[in-house]
């Protein structure tokens, strides 16, 4: 099955004509909506692969080379690797009123840093911590957030923000005896529900786009788990600086021999503390940034004691014997 990458899940609709042609001429006439937002063309016969690869040259040129500025050239041989998986994204603020960010733009910048590469990584970009993009089940979930500003003089004390925060966020706002708002800033997720609910513009988003990054989420038959909060209130520069270190980190863990292994397992092998050291190497954190000191994932083990095995079967990061 051919999977056409759609980084950020948004492309010019003109490409749909090509997809239909490929499905009907070379595939079995059906089309599958890829689970990672790729355009999937099932049933391509082995002998047709070269013809199909030649056909998709223009698509790769348009999407990977021009739209995402990936360091590659489009040729007649199809995609050079399948290591890094398609960067997923929700629709983001190009359409959704809840979103704090343009997810496509962010996804394209991430795609440029991780593709083409033989190292596996799954990333999904969400416009807000509601995470419709399911970043929590990706190696990296990248979610648009803000630090909010509150202008007490514009507040009419209607309490709409507190109600919205209670209903669909973390309930950190309350109306005080003076008819203004108190905030327990410890647990604000930066989602912006207060801004959307505010009738007067007393709540506004801060001046800088910020991001929340979850780490280590995955599905799988063996040990599915949800990601944990890795970095909070970091700038785009920090997020991209971190992704720029991914290939270096992966190469070191695998001792420079790429094999088919999911990105999350590389983090497990290195251990979180080592991962943190390498992935943030040379990254200058913004003043608001917070980073997890330790991470303790909770795995939903499908078999009891799945990690308990002879020590000779334990995997090791870094230089291999």
């Amino acid at each position: 099955m051919l999977q056409l990458r759609v980084p950020g899940a948004l492309i010019d609709a003109k490409h749909l004509a090509l997809v239909q042609e490929l499905c009907q001429k070379y595939g079995n006439g059906t089309f599958h909506m890829g689970m990672r937002q790729t355009l999937n063309i099932p049933g391509i016969k082995y002998e047709n692969i070269p013809a199909v690869n030649a056909k998709i040259k223009e698509y790769i040129q348009d999407v990977s080379v021009e739209m995402c500025d990936c360091d590659m050239e489009a040729d007649d041989l199809g995609y050079p690797t399948i290591g890094a998986r398609n960067v997923m994204a929700c629709i983001g603020n190009s359409h959704c009123i809840k979103a704090n960010a343009n997810t496509h733009e962010m996804a394209k910048k991430i795609e440029k840093l991780i593709f083409p590469s033989h190292y596996h990584i799954k990333v999904s970009v969400a416009g807000c911590p509601n995470d419709c993009a399911k970043g929590n089940f990706n190696d990296f979930g990248v979610m648009g957030i803000y630090k909010m500003d509150y202008d007490q003089d514009r507040c009419v004390g209607c309490g709409a923000c507190a109600k919205a925060c209670d209903h669909h966020a973390t309930g950190v706002l309350s109306l005080n005896a003076h008819g203004k708002i108190d905030k327990d800033s410890c647990c604000c997720v930066g989602c912006g529900e207060c801004v959307i609910a505010c009738p007067t513009g007393a709540w506004t988003r801060g001046d800088t786009h910020l991001w929340r990054v979850t780490l280590g989420g995955r599905t799988g038959k063996q040990f599915p788990r949800m990601g944990k909060l890795f970095m909070n209130f970091v700038t785009e520069e920090v997020v991209l600086g971190m992704f720029a270190n991914w290939q270096k980190f992966s190469a070191w863990v695998m001792d420079y021999k790429p094999e088919y292994l999911h990105g999350g397992h590389l983090i497990d092998r290195a251990g979180y503390v080592k991962f943190k050291e390498m992935i943030l190497d040379g990254v200058e954190l913004n003043p608001e940034a917070k980073v997890a000191e330790e991470l303790y994932w909770t795995e939903a083990e499908q078999r009891a004691n799945i990690h308990v095995k002879p020590i000779s079967k334990h995997h090791k990061a870094g230089p291999q014997a």
């Binding site: 603020n93 960010a101 648009g144 912006g192 801004v195 959307i196 513009g201 506004t204 988003r205």
Partner: peptide, 15 residues
């Protein structure tokens, strides 16, 4: 104009 201060992200507020 107050850039980025609109009700929805990346929109402006004029007041």
């Amino acid at each position: 104009r107050f850039p980025g201060k609109g009700r929805y992200s990346d929109t402006d507020l004029i007041r």
